[in-house]
Design a protein around this nucleic acid. Structure first.
Lengths: 237, 237
DNA sequence: CGTAACTTTGATTTGGGTCAACCGCGGTGG
DNA sequence: CCACCGCGGTTGACCCAAATCAAAGTTACG
């Protein structure tokens, strides 16, 4: 297990104030079904920002001042083990929410780090609390988010923490593919931390799947996947 | 992996209508800080019931008509794998809530089965929805419950899904001990399903810990634990 | 008292961990 | 421009913890 803890400093580029009304991912985002009048209640700035791979949205222990909706890219939530190792407990993608606990004023339970370049909206805690008191809509949405978080956590445990290394890797790919059977992948060390296996095993398995033609690496870490074959692997052995 | 799916029929004894105002676990229960006037909004029955070991509070796929607060005993939430096996994704104890998703009208995501004799309050979905619209208190509580569920899920992944079998078993005992260093334990098959190891390995490890004197079996599945020694095991190898 | 369910133990196999070397590539500085 | 790193990925050799297969205690109970 990797003992080194890379403390990456925050390195986000400010993209300007968000225009939630016109947000491209409105349906899947936190503010999905807010009404026009609801928006008028917001007068704290919601910042839109990009986060480079390796940079953090927030760290465990930071003041929980905001939560983040992921508008694009891939974010890992990591927890550090007493022995210094680390484990990735969830992956967040477009439409997901990071740092929900901030809405309750609870301390961040993870460190959130971008794996792919991330576009995110930073929503101050105060905005959430204000809105969640004023509107049923937002309340519902918040609960749904929480529900989603639990489901994801369980899925992580069951899908990615059970079975052989091959099966786990297969399932990981299946959670990442788009409808064209393609997906962006990431470093073997992170793969290991997600699946609870070593970097070497992760590498070996991915390499072998490539050799067997189940995966086709178009360009570095961009794969075309044989979805059906992966599904067999995922359930079978 | 165990392929057999034991469909246990519901076998709960009705204990009568609950008196929430005088509930012994008010502080830790869902209705913690409801006011007197809040209680007047409830006119659907909250049933208090006991559930025998092996019996289910609810099954995946049941109509999500109620959620359950655990007032005593131990409940396992299990998910079934595509290959027929099963994995326990969480353990619930006094003060915890099972079937939260019912509050959102979402289908149950697990089957909830009593491991030890359980005393529980069954709260109809309608009560939750009614109250959650009317009172801030309950809303807050619900969110906290959800937050708690996520934390538990993550802890399960990190603490019980990482490290050697010995370390996992040690951590499991540590999550179960009371302040006197004692705890009620349960069947090796369930231990395996919690920790992601086989029944045999679970048995071997527990047996060895007994031999080494870290565990002292007072009566069947009632243990006195050497907490410090277990903590060493939990972090170390 | 017999049978079923559960635990423990043994023998054997194996998947994946560990340790170490090597490859390929993008940077960097002489 | 090219030699030198350094980092991420891959591969090999070896070893061990846990899975698997099998059987013998234990306990509970009709």
């Amino acid at each position: 297990m990797d003992m080194s803890v890379k403390k990456t400093s925050i390195n986000a580029a400010w993209r300007g104030l968000a225009n939630c009304r016109g947000c491209g991912i409105r349906e899947s985002a936190l503010f999905a079904d807010l009404t026009e009048s609801d928006f008028n209640l917001i007068h704290l700035p919601i910042d839109e920002m990009t986060v480079a791979p390796g940079a953090a949205l927030y760290h465990v222990g930071d003041e929980p001042t905001a939560l983040f909706t992921v508008r694009g890219g891939l974010v890992k939530l990591v927890q550090y083990l007493p022995n210094g190792g680390q484990r990735i407990v969830r992956l967040l993608r477009t439409g997901d929410t990071a740092g929900l606990e901030a809405a309750l004023g609870e301390p961040y339970r993870h460190t959130a780090i971008a794996i792919h370049p991330v576009l995110t909206c930073r929503i101050p805690r105060a905005v959430i609390q204000r809105l969640s008191e004023e509107t049923q809509h937002l309340h519902q949405q918040l609960m749904r988010r929480w529900h989603q978080a639990v489901e994801r956590a369980d899925a992580f445990l069951v899908e990615l923490g059970t079975g052989s290394a091959r099966a786990r890797v297969a399932r990981l790919f299946l959670t990442l593919v788009d409808d064209h059977g393609e997906c962006d992948f990431f470093g073997r060390e992170d793969v290991g931390a997600v699946l609870g296996i070593t970097t070497e095993t992760a590498s070996r398995v991915v390499a072998e799947l490539k050799r067997q033609g189940l995966l086709n690496e178009m360009r570095p870490n961009r794969f075309h996947c044989n979805v059906d074959a992966l599904r067999d692997l995922a359930d079978g052995p």
